[in-house]
């Protein structure tokens, strides 16, 4: 058995009341997602803001109730364990929360925060503090162990949160936007730290990020989410080269180039049309309201999950409904289409 985390057909909803006295009707924000993370594997979860990535992270760790589905963590089915029975297993998976401001207890010092998850271990207080101090040093925070969270900048807090997640040596770390608050130099340091842990200890990561250049560097596989659903899955290189889903394509086209390659801007796909409303997806393909290639079938039929020859799976009618568009064709088609619409609008690159 080599999977650290297996999630199958998981759905999550939030209760939502309509009106003051209205009945509570659940709002389903994650729908039937399935994926697994292998030992030592880095799986990236990318997707639009509000598509349900953080919800998946919290639900997988049973911090949120799930509607249906099955979660297996390090070979233990934790779906129905009681919170008490779950406690010993929690050490196996740690979460770096998206918001480093509210996820650190303001009444504890940096070193206490990092030392806390070590409490269950057979270590003396001295040993725990020393190991917490080493962890803080490894994220570039030596010498400020006794300070409180409010004394740190945003990026520094994020690093405390990362050190805390590393402390109990988990098999899986779920990182919710772990480096997005960091400058590139620090980002690179942290990423290579995470990477070296994977190599030396075989830690796996579920890496939630919207930064595709980071994802491309460290992820073995990518999951793309749109409006609560996984719409594409495959090995990073292949997904980046031949995306199946037009949404992935739009994501890939929108990365701002630092310098030089300004020609990229000309190809940016600007998504238009109605945004998905959480819990009330449009009929048919959820992306059809904004898809530049939408066909009639997309408005009525839900595309089936299909595995394609190049190892990428996804949901899109374009490739299955007799359209002539191939995978590389999609990229090419998009480039041409965008180039021509840009010309029409007289839009130029900056």
């Amino acid at each position: 058995m080599t999977q650290v985390l297996e999630v199958s057909e998981m759905s999550v909803s939030f209760p939502r009341r309509s009106g003051l006295l209205g009945k509570s009707q659940p709002l389903r924000v994650v729908e039937n997602v399935s994926f697994e993370v292998g030992k030592g594997e880095v799986v990236a979860l990318v997707g639009e803001s509000g598509s349900g990535k953080s919800t998946i992270a919290r639900a997988v760790l049973r911090l949120l109730p799930i509607d249906n589905g099955r979660i297996t963590l390090a070979d233990v089915d934790i779906t129905t364990l009681s919170q008490r029975a779950l406690r010993p297993h929690r050490r196996n998976a740690q979460l770096v929360f998206q918001d480093p401001y509210s996820s650190l207890d303001p009444s504890m010092t940096a070193i206490e925060i990092v030392e806390e998850p070590l409490r269950g271990f057979a270590m003396s207080r001295e040993e725990r503090l020393r190991s917490a101090q080493e962890l803080l040093a490894s994220v570039g925070l030596a010498g400020v162990e006794g300070r409180y969270p409010y004394e740190f900048s945003g990026g520094q807090r994020q690093r405390i949160a990362i050190a805390r997640a590393l402390a109990p040596r988990p098999a899986l770390i779920i990182c919710d936007e772990p480096v997005s608050a960091l400058d590139l130099s620090t980002q690179n340091q942290i990423i290579s730290l995470l990477d070296s842990l994977r190599q030396s200890l075989g830690v796996s990561y579920l890496f939630i990020s919207h930064d595709l250049s980071v994802v491309r560097r460290i992820a073995d596989r990518v999951l793309v989410m749109y409006a609560g659903e996984i719409v594409e899955e495959g090995p990073t290189e292949r997904v980046f080269r031949d995306p199946v889903h037009p949404y992935t394509l739009a994501l890939l086209s929108a990365v701002p180039a630092v310098v030089g390659d300004r020609s990229k801007h000309a190809k940016r796909i600007v998504l238009e049309g109605d945004l998905p409303v959480p819990g009330a997806p449009p009929p048919g393909c959820r992306f059809h309201t904004r898809c530049p290639f939408a066909m009639d079938v997309c408005r009525s039929e839900v595309p089936a999950w299909t595995e394609f020859d190049h190892g990428v799976s996804g949901r899109c009618h374009l490739h299955t409904s007799g359209s002539t568009l191939g995978f590389s064709g999609l990229t090419q088609f998009a480039e041409d289409a965008m180039a021509s619409t840009d010309r029409d609008r007289g839009q130029t690159s900056i």
């Binding site: 650190l104 207890d105 806390e116």
Partner: peptide
């Protein structure tokens, strides 16, 4: 607060 959720996720 998220830090309470974080504490729970650590298995405290």
């Amino acid at each position: 607060e998220t830090f309470v959720e974080a504490a729970k996720s650590m298995g405290l």
